[in-house]
Design a protein around this nucleic acid. Sequence first.
RNA 1: CGGGGUAUAGCUCAGCCUGGUAGAGCGCUACGUUCGGGACGUAGAGGUCGUGAGUUCGAAUCUCGCUACCCCGACCA
Length: 515
Amino acid sequence: MRYSEFGLTTLKEVPAEAEIVSHQLMLRAGLIRRLASGLFTWMPLGLRVLRKVENIVREEMNRAGALELLMPAVQPAELWQESGRWEEYGPLLLRMFDRSEREYCFGPTHEEVITDIARRELRSYKQLPLNFYQIQTKFRDEIRPRFGIMRSREFIMKDAYSFDLDKDGMRAAYDKMHAAYSAIFERLGLTFRVVDADSGEIGGSRSQEFHVLADSGEDAIAYCDEDDYASNIEMAATEPAGGERPAASQDLEKIATPGAKSITALGEMLGIAPHQMLKTLIVEGDEQPVALALRGDHELNTVKAQKIPGVASPLTMADPAAIRTVTGCEPGFAGPIGLDIPVYYDHATADMADFVCGANEIDRHYTGTNFERDLAVPETVDLRNVVEGDPTPGGKGTLCIARGIEVGHIFQLGAKYSTAFGASVLDKDGKDRTLEMGCYGIGITRIVGAAIEQNHDDSGIIWPEPLTPFNVVLVPINMHRSDAVREAAEALYQELEKRGNMLKSQRGESGKGRA
RNA sequence: CGGGGUAUAGCUCAGCCUGGUAGAGCGCUACGUUCGGGACGUAGAGGUCGUGAGUUCGAAUCUCGCUACCCCGACCA
């Protein structure tokens, strides 16, 4: 390809719309152009990279024995009603009507369609195991698209779905995908980590995410190099504190703390550290509000909190009116003493002594609070996000926290969809068996962004070799006044062109250097 | 959806407060110079100032509505 024939436009200045480097560089290098919020055109240069990612993914999926097919992007509403997700998925699902008023959605994922295929096509255990995949455009009407290609509304995903006769088969299929995914990210030349994850909306039991490590990542992951532990911070468990609780040394005292509604404000006013305070959060519950108590320096983990019986899911902070009813005072001064609703204490609160907490009275806190004497000894639960230095669940190491970009997610689904759709086969004994499924996604478009986040410097993108749009850039110097240079460059160009993947810049003509 | 912000040339922005002439740099076009480390000169093209109303003799500028985009929160490959 000659530069002069490639129609590349680049930008010197950083477009105002771009926040993170990958987005900025993709716009500047002319890889993508924005059409509307969360919608992008892949320009020729960018598409070359995208196709390379796609091909590597395709090759490894094929190698793992998966079968490529292509499902429609537009799906009838009935299928989604059958799985119950027409309601569940909410506004994320882009819905539309055809000319005869039949309702459809633009597929955000394809469990429904593939399970429909499975129930129609699969009759016998002899057809199993099977793993179908596609590389296709999805649409999710994200609440807030951002970071360019990283969280766009339309994007390309590789999604695979495995079908097995039993749980063991499903686990084997899952392990195979785990291995294939690792091979893919290794071939792509990316630094990544596999972490335990919450299976969320899609459902099922076990699930793991593949994260490309990058400071701009939207997810926090906790890992430990000493014992192989790695988990999304949403899921990383903390254990009950092992230590003894120190004896009370101070008296319980109610003090004036005017306007100190936050841990930081209170800390400054009293000159004490956040870990000596107890924060009490009031959240909505199924029947009545519920209080969650954490050490002041710890952060509430919403995924963990909403799994507690009686806590409303999705987790919602109680509104000021509800807080007033429950505590009898303005938000900011809630505390467990005298509180007449269920209180759940985080594990880490168990060995706190002489701590500060709200007094359920405006502008008042207690100091010198102690369990046993002032409060019942708490039954503790896991409520908080892990922090750097926490012990791993095995107890052998300590946790590090890193940021990651989720580029892959694998799930053991079980029979959630096959049951809903009646997808079953006959086994050896002629008995009807509901299929065990797994599903496996890779964000193809997101990988391009993630690769740039991880590989760039001040002068631009440094592609991992397998992703380069061009492998060789030929820059003839002074070609316009040396026939020898022209001929040699031309010969070299012809030779390289045969092998593909090269860009020739005619310097006298274009004046451009870096491609 | 709640909170905050922005909208003027292809890109980055100034002009708006204090109404009257549409600006800069980069990019683009032409010509010339330069050509071993991201060039330079000269000339030029390019804008219904997001959109609709209002105020005014007169609106990019003041007022109101609408739309789009961006940032902070819930969601996810």
